[in-house]
């Protein structure tokens, strides 16, 4: 059997017929060709497939595409807006938060969700927030620093000033 689903991915609406057993991550990678979301395991352990489903960090390997019918999805490809990198994307570069890059999209998506809930995290909170994401290259320290860097940047006065200016 195949089922029609309609969902919004990175602001673009898609309608497709999919087999019920198709995992959301395979839908994104194989149907929509959004290959920035990766598969690193088969037991929901590594977090490389993390995306946002209706604003929540989600392991897209543990969700069926049919479950995402009507959902709003953001993947790593949707994080930069108007060619401007998301502060986390900039931070990972500035703090050397990646090496091979395979876990990076999942790390960034998890961190982005986390920073919406905790705008001024400490080191311990950041490390705990990464509980569902594995990295084999970095030893995590520079990922922690990247997230701290992005948090600082996102709450820096400069950002507020821009907002204020915009309202003036």
């Amino acid at each position: 059997m195949s089922i029609k689903i309609t969902l919004t991915v990175n602001g673009v609406k898609h309608t497709n017929k999919v087999e019920p057993r198709m995992l959301l991550v395979h839908y994104l990678r194989d149907v929509l060709k959004l290959t920035g979301t990766h598969v690193g395991c088969d037991t929901s352990g590594c977090g490389a497939c993390t995306i946002h489903v209706n604003g929540k960090a989600t392991k897209s390997c543990t969700m069926l595409a049919v479950q995402a019918d009507k959902a709003k999805i953001i993947t790593i490809e949707g994080m930069a807006t108007h060619h401007e990198l998301h502060p986390l994307q900039e931070a990972f570069n500035q703090c050397h938060g990646l090496q091979c890059g395979f876990c990076t999209p999942g790390m960034i998506m998890t961190a982005a969700d986390f920073l919406t809930r905790n705008k001024k995290p400490n080191e311990k909170e950041i490390r705990e927030a990464l509980e569902g994401n594995l990295c084999r290259c970095t030893g995590y320290e520079n990922i922690v620093k990247s997230i701290q860097y992005a948090a600082d940047k996102m709450s820096a006065p400069k950002a507020r000033k821009t907002k204020k200016e915009a309202t003036v």
Binding site: S44, G47, M63, E131, G132
Partner: peptide, 9 residues
């Protein structure tokens, strides 16, 4: 329980 992604679903 689990991790944040697991708790979300």
């Amino acid at each position: 329980i689990g991790d944040v992604q697991v708790r979300n679903h």
